[in-house]
């Protein structure tokens, strides 16, 4: 269990936070219902509703976009002094030897790293492919659920409902999207820069406490 502490810890606090969001989101929804002389709905109906769905998926898509971008741009972009960056002279996809691909694979390398051809190409990009697929899927679900929640409000105000295409061009969809994107981009950018000068003893996300500010690609 100790060997998998990181995954287990984040899995547990994810579930706790999602349950918490469901409980307080349900209370907030019913508060709004009461304000409009509506009937409260059950917790189950709330967590299977688009109101809850869009709130969940708009955050998921931005998180997966953040990691997709970070995985991808750190191949080519470097940041002097940051432990988040590769050494300045290693920008790019690197050589097969450095990546232990094909005939450079060692006995413990994953099979697809040694296989060569399409399988190695796919496996070489598998992390970003899966992260991007989850991002696109959750962004799509945000659009589907967001449109239903938006249309509920529209009808509540005696306004016409939007189809999915119209909703994709609406200010509501882009407001929900961009408000999440900007916070992710800020957090990841500030992490890359702050880690040049600041340290956390023992964390692999930081340089060793005594490492110089211009040491790049060094993790403690």
């Amino acid at each position: 269990m100790r060997r998998h502490g990181l995954g287990l810890f984040f899995g547990a606090i994810f579930l706790a936070a999602l349950i918490g969001q469901a409980i307080v989101g349900h209370a907030d929804f019913n508060h709004a219902q009461a304000a409009h002389h509506g009937d409260p709905i059950s917790l189950w109906r709330y967590v299977t509703s688009s109101e809850f769905g869009t709130d969940v998926f708009e955050n998921w898509q931005s998180e997966y976009l953040q990691f997709t971008l970070y995985i991808l741009v750190t191949v080519w972009l470097v940041q002097q002094g940051s432990p988040e960056s590769k050494p300045l002279d290693r920008a790019g996809t690197e050589s097969d030897e450095e990546q232990k691909i094909g005939r450079h694979a060692d006995p413990r390398s994953p099979r697809w790293a040694a296989a060569g051809g399409l399988r190695t190409s796919i496996y070489s990009n598998s992390l970003v492919l899966v992260m991007a697929a989850i991002w696109i899927a959750s962004w799509g679900l945000q659009a589907v659920a967001g449109r239903i929640a938006y249309n509920a409000d529209q009808l509540d105000h005696q306004q016409a409902a939007l189809n999915l295409w119209q909703y994709l061009g609406s200010s509501d969809f882009w407001d929900r999207t961009l408000q999440n994107w900007q916070s992710e981009f800020l957090a990841v950018g500030s992490m890359a820069v702050l880690a040049i000068y600041l340290r956390q003893r023992g964390s692999p996300e930081s340089k060793p406490v005594g490492a110089p500010h211009d040491a790049t690609g060094v993790e403690g």
Partner: peptide, 9 residues
């Protein structure tokens, strides 16, 4: 008939 959550037209 269009129905969204607790509203309909």
């Amino acid at each position: 008939l269009q129905l969204y959550v607790t509203n309909a037209k």
